[in-house]
Every structure is written in C-alpha cells, then in structure tokens.
Amino acid sequence: MVGIVGYGAYVPRYRIKAEVIAKQWGADPEAVTRGLSLVEKTVPGQDEDTITISVAAAQYALRRAGIDPKEIGAVYVGSESHPYAVKPSATILIDALGIGPHVHVASYEFACKAGTEAMYVAYSHVKAGEMKYAMGIGADTSQGAPGDALEYTASAGGAAFIMGRERLVAEILFTHSYTSDTPDFWRREGENYPRHGGRFTGDPAYFRHIVGAGKALLEKSKMAPADFKFAVFHMPNGKFPQEVGKRLGFTKDQMEAGWIVPWMGNTYSGSSPCGLAAILDVAKPGDLIFMVSFGSGAGSDGFIYRVTDEIVKVQDRAPKLRQMLDSDKVYLDYGQYAKYRRKIKLNE
C-alpha cells in the first residue's frame, strides 16, 4: 500500500478581515462576509513566498515522517504564485532541507489544483516503485486584483505530504482525475493578476469537475458518502465547498474539520491540501477521508484515504493547522496589506 508517511502545513501570521477589504472598495461589509461565508484571510509576511511557505510545511512533514531527507526521490511544488516565472521553486527547497542532490524536482501549475497534482505525481512515483519517498506540496501566496472579488479570498499558506510505503499515517485507497478545457479563470504571461469568468466559474467549472471526479471516485471505490468520516473540497469561498459536498451527498459534519476557509481564505494550490492537513490533525485510526480538489482551466483530482494507527504518533510532532490559524494573529489594515502584497507602485 502507498500513502502518506508525513504531512505538514504552514500558515503565515498576518490576516486581513473581509470587511476591511469591503470597506476599502465601498462594498457592504456584512453582505460580503455573509455572501462568501468568509471572515478573514491569511496574508504572507513581506519575507514570505511560495518557497518559504513550502519549506516551512515540508519541515513539519519531515518532522512527522521522521525519515532521512536524503531518501526522498522527488519533490514537486504546485502553486500559481511561484516566485520565479522560470526557475523551479523546489530547487531552493531541497537545498534548504538537505534533500538531494539526487532528486527529481518540478514546479507544477494548474490554478488551484497544482497542489493535488504534485501529490498525485509523488504518489504515482512511489506506487510505480521508482523511489522510496516522494513529496508533493501545494502552496500559494494567491493573487487577486485589487477591487476584484478574488481579493476577499486570495490567501497564503501551504501543505506538504511525503508519500511512501512504510509506516503510513494514511493509505491512499483510490484516486481519480477529471479534466476538460474550461476557460473559467486564467492569467496570461506578463499579467499581474488572474482574470475570471465571474459566474461561469460556478456550475460549468467548479461544480461540474468536482462532482465529475467525486462521483467517479465513489463508483470506483464502491463506497457511499456515509462511509466517510471526513470530506474536503477545494475552498474558493465558504459557500462553494458546502454546496458541492451537499450535491455529492456529504453532510456538514463530515466537512466541518477540513472547512478552514472562513478563517484562512482561498489558499489556491494550498486550499484542499491544507484542509486535508487540518483533518489529519484530528483524524483517528480507521477514519476514511474523501478529498476532491479543483483547479480552473479546469480539472479535479480526487483521493480516498484511510487513516492508520500511526496517525496518533505523529499528530503532535509539528504545529497543527487550526492552532496556526487561531493563534498569534496580526491583523493588517488595507494600507499595510497593499504594501505587504506589493499593490502599491514604487520607484524602482
């Protein structure tokens, strides 16, 4: 069996409340907060980016896995905010963590599902017997244009998963991907911020792909929604994951543990991976977890995990996601946020 031997998530300390952004643009704060089911979002520090977030998450994953970093054969970082347009994020990560140089690395991009893409490829390498361990990371310092609806949600954070065959904390029982050409959200080369198709991002994109992957996964596994203790979906806002879970037959209770979006925002490639990390933080041996990501463009990756006895040994070895989300918060006003996110034009 192949699965997760170690996981870790990282969330920056800084936050901005949705109502603060709403006020800035003359929107009704109460309506925005309610409409998106979103209280606040994480903001990266000025010295944080997808690479530093990936390193922090990967360090925690290594701590939980308790393995020699040199045994990791591949590292994939999925993000839509890689700091370099050309130069892989993971080259910096492997040198920071003492992985490699005998290692395969790549940067993945697939809007919000680049993280599960990285996890899927890492899992496949181990399953194919190519290597003992492989790491998949989803991390982002998400982009959203000032004044755009995305600005309320685009947040920062990430999660890392080390795949292997021994001492698994969660087995991967089934996977399924569902992909089509759907232009719901994109960013052209050289553009600062992504564009999106407004309501076209809903039914034809988010819902169609998650439901497509989710249904296939249930059929493949011959399992029913009621069999699962937990379910987590991509979280572009508070409402969409609740709605898509309902359409697939999951209950609010099953989604509660992974539903971190009201206090975290949409961490793009790190969204459902962070949700999975939050679930693993509280999961018990034997629990089944249903996970489907979504990336615009568009596609979904689905996974079914079964938590093992090992989980209780590793949960406390590194900070838990909810702890990071709930403690040491530093709230920014819009001016500070605009500076931190480099939305102010400066002299070179």
Partner: peptide, 16 residues
Amino acid sequence: VFRKIQEDGKAGILCY
C-alpha cells in the same frame, strides 16, 4: 526559520 532576505532588484535573483 527560512525566509526571503532580499531581492537583487526587480528582475534579479531572490535571496533566501
């Protein structure tokens, strides 16, 4: 912790 320390201008390398 591992952080970005500086940038070599707008187009140069990032320094961690």
